[in-house]
């Protein structure tokens, strides 16, 4: 069964076109999402929209100020908990990771990385909200940390593994201790990979919604304390999308634009900064 050459060439062409079509099909939704978010969200943007709390339906439009503030606080608080823990975990896995304990930890981290986020919400609700007796910013940050820690740990490990052993040996040969070597030599050497991975992980948790439904509740006011309910952009988008009032839905699109700007800025910024400095 020998296909004639022309037919084989045609199949080859067809294959090329099909693969190109795959790329186009995948990119169309992306462009549509970006277009719709900008087209529907941009008209919402105003100083008032960005800085005020929700208005009264039918009276004043108000804004999503508390949601923006809440998201920033959540990102900050989660980073505060999650990044140090994640990086130290990663350091352990990379630098001391040649034992059974470490490989068990590595597997657990791998599994956690793909955890359904809604389950993290149930956990944080049961463990933090019910214990503290209040929906709170802290509960939200704990839930998001559960998502952030394993990602940062794995990223750190991967970045540290790319640092050549000769670097470690050089430092140790100069008489530096292992801890000193790790903190002063290995981590800085892996800097760009670490920063890239960590910020991408932060960008991911910035858009997480499901765990927030069960933890931060939402708030029409600006920050009232870590033990109090708080608003967040993804939560606001979800709630507003399901409201029967067109003006609230429109605000949801405005909030989506702000959120996507934050997330994309983190992504694009990180990639531009790390381009060429770090082997992909």
């Amino acid at each position: 069964m020998i296909n004639n050459y022309a037919f084989r060439k045609f199949k080859n062409r067809l294959f090329f076109v099909l693969c190109l079509a795959c790329v186009v099909i995948a990119i169309v939704p992306l462009l549509s999402i970006l277009y719709e978010v900008i087209a529907r969200g941009a008209p919402q943007l105003s100083w008032e929209f960005l800085t005020q709390g929700p208005g009264t339906i039918g009276v004043s439009a108000g804004g999503i100020g508390p949601a923006i503030q809440g998201s920033l606080i959540l990102i900050g608080l989660t980073s505060l908990i999650g990044i140090p823990v994640g990086i130290l975990s990663g350091v352990y896995l990379a630098e001391f990771g040649n034992n059974r304990y470490a490989s068990a930890m590595r597997t657990v981290n791998d599994v956690l990385t793909e955890f359904p986020s809604i389950i993290v919400g149930i956990t944080a609700f049961s463990v933090v909200v019910l214990t503290m007796g209040s929906f709170s910013a802290i509960a939200g940050a704990v839930a998001l940390s559960f998502i952030l820690i394993p990602v940062v740990a794995r990223t750190t490990e991967e970045s540290l593994k790319l640092v050549p052993n000769s670097v470690r040996e050089a430092s140790l040969a100069l008489g530096a201790h292992k801890w000193r070597t790790t903190l002063s030599v290995v981590l800085p050497a892996a800097k760009s990979g670490l920063v890239t991975g960590t910020l991408l992980a932060v960008a991911r948790i910035a858009g997480e919604t499901a765990p927030l439904i069960m933890t931060v509740l939402g708030n029409t006011y600006f920050f009232q304390g870590f033990g109090q309910p708080m608003d967040a952009l993804p939560l606001r988008i979800w709630r507003n999308a399901l409201q029967p009032y067109p003006e609230l839905q429109a605000q949801g699109w405005g909030a989506a634009l702000v959120l996507i700007l934050i997330v994309l800025a983190l992504n694009i910024g990180v990639r531009l900064a790390s381009r060429g400095r770090f082997r992909k």
Binding site: S79, P188, V195
Partner: peptide, 17 residues
Amino acid sequence: TAYTIVIAIVAIAIIAG
């Protein structure tokens, strides 16, 4: 550059805080 990475982490924490 010894503590650069530590400083980077701390910086994030400070910004957050």
